[in-house]
Design a protein around this nucleic acid. Structure first.
Lengths: 370, 370
DNA sequence: TTGTATGCGTTATCAT
DNA sequence: ATGATAACGCATACAA
């Protein structure tokens, strides 16, 4: 007669009796009639263990539905299989798709992704990094909200959590990084617009910081996260090169979100000398721009041209199709995780910077300036 | 003279010397001159500890930049602050935004979200759940890929990880669940179409399983994930009620993704008696439908009406604006996490089902049947 | 090949 | 109020 009334004694009752206490390695070992060490070796596939012992252990684990406790394992090994992904908003097209790629690449490497949305708020980013450090994350992929404030990232590295910078660089933070060549792409966009006769070209960019910065001088541009800054610099440079006198006359920095972009664009379109073209920094901004253009009753591309710095999925269902820069989101995500894995494997290797090409896709929304 | 040459002895060298070994509670205790127990109480804010001791401990923790090791804590407490989010694709508009809301709600409650994309593959879903169990996740929010196969979810519950079903229900799985009232919304859509004289109304739905199911009998409908199934049932019922003889003549189930939807729609439009309206199950499918309509050179809403079962961000920038059912994504996510938190707090409470209203937004893309 | 024994960093119990 | 000490589940150095 059995001396304990466990599930085994009650028979193969198919998992209805909810057991709140998980099966441990010890139980498996006992069941298999070996020591914990042997059971651990058999399951972990290391050390040396006889065929017979291995069979017994594996069978016992199977029967008991043993699930190794990763938490306990981590306390012992000092490392977890968790990586952090810290971005502005996984609900947005750009970061949503990037995050998906990062997360998939992580899984393929046996790591799990914890995601945090910062809404571009540096405080949230700091808190997220701090949390990931407490969780002893194996590494962090971050699209930093600030170009200048990166001390928390350096601290993470010092604490043993490698950091990979996605889409943006940070002053004074030495880390692996990957981003797309927004500068070249934006220059190509501007070249096309200028060659088509456009001179009053507006640029509406999402930007953290003081909203609705007034035209005139823009020291703020240097404080923008680099991907935005790169595009704007290319924009200003192109205009200057084309002989435009006040290149920043039609530059608008506005808070993230469609509504702000719509308002900013509406103001631009209300000017006596309204722009003949609008360059939207990304897909979300483009939505606001198109809304404003529509409200103003202007036709595209006849009366105004529109182009976006990111290619949203819907770019080909507008009439006319939206010209845009296609960001290599999937490759960005994959590369980010690759860089992270390489650094985890070899913490002392030199930092690497990957710049991925972004293609300018000229479609119907660009016309000739009147 | 100090008897140890720690960072404190070397002065406030600002974090340049990378320390791979994290500060432990013991170190803080030693620094503060108290026992580990007292340090733990002071930091944990429980038990009783004198003012002076508390001060010392807090100061020491601050100086040493102590970061409590959540992994060690979890081994001891047996519970983690990790929740799983298992959905088809966080890069998609619907799940991307839902996931964002879930993740934010989790953070607000002190939990962290690890996300997994299944691409609607049940095997991936199983592996994800298994992984979350090994990680000892505190709970799981899942949009199950299969309506019938839910044993892994029941196992998760049995293992102590509560499950909340998002957007979809599963046969034989008793769990909290939240979804939107797709049936009512789809019925409203159909009512409008029918009242405008439409009879040949196509429905293009994303669906896992055998692709391109032929018209005729659709036993497969009952196997669809419920949100899709609910819509289709409403569609078929509405057509039947309107006296349409073969309600499934224009029903198309196709694999997830824009391209498949485009092909399916193209086939429908090529029929001698082409549909006068198309109901797209979600935003991604709508993209394909619009593409096909455009390729066929048909005008909306003059020659064909289009409506989507999910309201994508871009619905108002098409010409004309796309009619759609607005899914309460944010509320779905928040509710899912609320349900999970409540169950974690009280595992034995009765299961709860929340059905959120989905609003049908009639815009310009619906016209009168010729 | 196998088992014994110890440690990971925490929380929590129980004396003091 | 405080400190010594046991546990959590696993991995592993070392002894057998």
């Amino acid at each position: 007669m059995p001396e304990h009334s466990t599930a085994a004694a009650t028979g193969e009752a198919p998992g209805l009796a909810a057991r709140r206490t998980a099966v441990t390695l010890t139980e498996v070992a006992v069941r298999a009639g070996v020591s914990r060490a042997t059971a651990a070796r058999a399951l972990g596939g290391y050390g040396s263990v006889s065929q017979s012992a291995r069979q017994l252990v594996l069978a016992a684990a199977e029967e008991l539905k043993y699930r190794p406790n990763m938490v306990a394992r981590s306390t012992r090994t000092g490392t977890t299989s968790i990586v952090g992904i810290v971005v502005a908003d996984i609900g947005s097209p750009f970061f949503g798709r990037s995050t998906r790629s990062i997360s998939d690449a992580a899984r393929a490497a046996g790591l799990e992704a914890v995601v945090v949305n910062t809404d571009e708020e540096i405080e949230v980013e700091r808190a997220a990094v701090s949390m990931l450090l407490r969780q002893r994350a194996a590494g962090i992929v971050v699209a930093p909200a600030s170009r200048s404030d990166g001390q928390h990232l350096t601290e993470a590295q010092a604490a043993g959590a490698p950091v990979v910078l996605l889409d943006r660089r940070v002053h004074d933070v030495a880390a692996d990084r990957v981003y797309s060549d927004n500068e070249t792409a934006a220059t190509a966009v501007m070249a096309e617009l200028i060659s088509r006769g456009h001179r009053r070209i507006a640029y509406v960019s999402s930007a953290a910081g003081p909203e609705g910065a007034v035209p005139g001088h823009y020291p703020a541009v240097d404080d923008l996260v680099t991907s935005a800054g790169d595009r704007i610099r290319a924009y200003l440079r192109s205009l200057s090169a084309a002989g435009v006198e006040a290149p920043d006359a039609y530059l608008r920095l506005c808070p993230f979100g469609e509504e702000a972009a719509q308002q900013a664009t509406a103001q631009l379109l209300a000017r006596p000398e309204r722009p003949t073209a609008v360059f939207a920094s990304d897909g979300v901004i483009a939505l606001g721009v198109l809304r404003a253009v529509h409200d103003a009753g202007l036709s595209i591309p006849g009366e105004i041209s529109v182009v976006a710095g990111d290619d949203p999925t819907w770019s080909r269902v507008t009439t006319p199709a939206l010209s845009a820069v296609a960001q290599p989101v999937h490759e960005l995500g994959q590369t980010a995780m690759n860089l992270l894995l390489k650094r985890i494997a070899d913490p002392d290797r030199p930092f690497e910077e990957r710049v991925l090409p972004a293609a300018f896709l000229s479609r119907g929304s660009i016309g000739t300036a009147s």
